[in-house]
């Protein structure tokens, strides 16, 4: 278990853990919500929500695995951290405007 590519410094590990587990979840949840909304164009709303949510677990799993394999912490910040914030902002904005 030598040569942990994830970076062994506790601070690096903590950042990675938060970015991947929390950021990955928030990004997945935003993708599920937006995907569900898009799918309402072709499916009944309940069907769109169900399809998007089921696929969301696969997306989250892929993000988790990728996030722990990706060497660059910077890229995690951009893609998972940034993606999660952007996604959640869009979701909240749409939820507000549509009410």
């Amino acid at each position: 278990m030598k040569g942990v590519s994830a970076g062994r410094h506790p601070l690096a590990v903590t950042q990675r853990l938060l970015l991947v587990v929390v950021g990955g979840y928030l990004l997945s949840a935003a993708a599920v919500a937006l995907g569900g909304l898009l799918l309402t164009g072709v499916l009944a709303p309940s069907e769109a929500v169900a399809l998007s949510a089921m696929l969301g677990f696969i997306l989250y799993l892929v993000l988790l695995l990728w996030g722990f394999a990706e060497r660059s912490l910077g890229r995690l910040w951009w893609l998972l951290g940034g993606g999660a914030v952007l996604g959640q902002v869009v979701v909240q904005a749409l939820a507000w405007s549509g009410g």
Binding site: S28, A29, A30, V32, A33, L34, G35, G36, L37, T40, P45, S46, A48, V49, S52, A53, G56, F57, V91, L94, A95, G98
Partner: peptide, 9 residues
């Protein structure tokens, strides 16, 4: 686990 999907749709 994904409550926001229904909220948005």
């Amino acid at each position: 686990y994904f409550p926001s999907a229904a909220d948005l749709a």
